[in-house]
Design a protein around this nucleic acid. Structure first.
Lengths: 229, 229
DNA sequence: GAGTGGTCTAGACCACGTT
DNA sequence: ACGTGGTCTAGACCACTCT
């Protein structure tokens, strides 16, 4: 019988995980594998390409395909819009604008976003609640040079996140996770104690080389970001 | 001139990010797109399949392809072996075993790994250094019912992580990130102050339904996990 | 029932990198 | 120079699911 690309992929995967094909060893070429599995080369190609995408094998023209020495395992996290994240848990979402100001871009932000001198930014502070409990604190800066229309939006009504995803395209994103401490102000918003450890996500966004926005999201203490693979 | 799948993909991507194809709207079917781009349907298919994998569009047979309402943006993190992570930064890697013990599996671990009653586990505490500075603290439990041979390994010589990736296959992994506080013991290992916020990664691993290992990795304060897309 | 995506095929040409 | 993977083609059949 003929093999599908999934057959081929899972067979090769098992050869690797069972150790039949050791780390660093050379895998037969596509033509040979196609003969072995009695399928077209394109079928083998797809299986191998996916395994390469997943970091299990390494492919180079002419040199052939090898099992990776240390398989690079990758975790994929969905980065949802807060509202969707909360509603998916079956909780009621509430948004509140805490503060809004137009300011000159501070130095650290200019460095983060690779901005030039002297632009203005819109600085927003918001809170997101799940069933009335503080869920996430949002500290956001929007580059007004790139998005002048942000001046006229009523951010008491719509969250900056939702406004941005609906109106602004983006091409480059840098995201990073870290651990921080809740200071007194943050503790007040998140209904926790000052000095509590908080999970922080920072995201910078560009569109065609121009900085769009930087946001720091802080979750209530105890938050976990989980995924499976 | 004929379009490659990359041409098609980036053209469609730009139609979406520029808003020409609005969220929720129906995308032309593959046959039509193939005509438009003067290429084979398989070429369009590959472009669309990758966009679907990346969470920008949603495809269903008969119903067609739609632009996702809220594009699910995904961040992919490489989960490297510590040694590789450190050496890639150009730093010298050093490993040290702090403690090793065979214990009955505590309740919280049995819950985590969905283990039955009364098994024994190997509990290891290790440190990983970069250029002599504390980099990561590793608290690991290995299920001896699944891996009896772990009793005989000399973990003073080889880190449990490296031993495991070299000898044990795994099929299911659950990984989660969170923020925690350094207690006094951890602070001693990481050369930081007790009460410092620390970034924590937890990973549970199974192979064919059987629990293999659970590990809690704690990084020195200030650690960031970053990615781009 | 019919329209859409999912996959496979056999062949072809090309791009790249090792030798 | 040549062997490998990367991609494209034109056609085919199948699987799903909406109406």
């Amino acid at each position: 019988m003929k093999a599908t690309y999934k057959d081929v992929k899972s067979d090769i995967l098992s050869k690797i995980t069972r150790g039949e094909w050791a780390p660093g060893s050379l895998v037969p070429n596509e033509v040979d594998l196609a003969t072995t599995y009695r399928c077209a080369r394109a079928t083998v190609n797809r299986a191998m390409r996916e395994l390469a995408d997943e970091g299990l094998i390494e492919r180079r023209r002419k040199a052939g395909t090898r099992v990776r020495m240390t398989p690079i395992r990758q975790a994929r996290f969905d980065i949802p819009v807060v509202r969707a994240e909360i509603e998916e848990k079956g909780a009621a979402y509430r948004y509140s604008l805490v503060n809004l100001a137009v300011e000159p871009a501070p130095d650290w932000l200019r460095a983060r976003l690779r901005l030039g001198e002297g632009g203005e930014v819109l600085h927003l502070v918001c809170m997101h609640y799940a069933d009335g409990d503080p869920y996430q604190h949002e500290d956001r800066w929007i580059n007004l040079a790139a998005l002048p229309q942000a001046r006229t939006v009523d951010f008491a009504e719509i969250g900056p996140n939702e406004w941005l995803v609906a109106t602004v395209p983006f091409s480059d994103v840098e995201i990073s996770f870290s651990a921080g401490l809740a200071d007194r102000r943050l503790a007040g918003h998140l209904a926790c104690a000052a000095g509590d450890p908080v999970f922080t996500v920072e995201r910078s966004t560009w569109w065609e080389g121009q900085a769009v926005t930087y946001v720091r999201l802080t979750f209530r203490p105890g938050h976990r970001m989980t995924t499976r693979y």
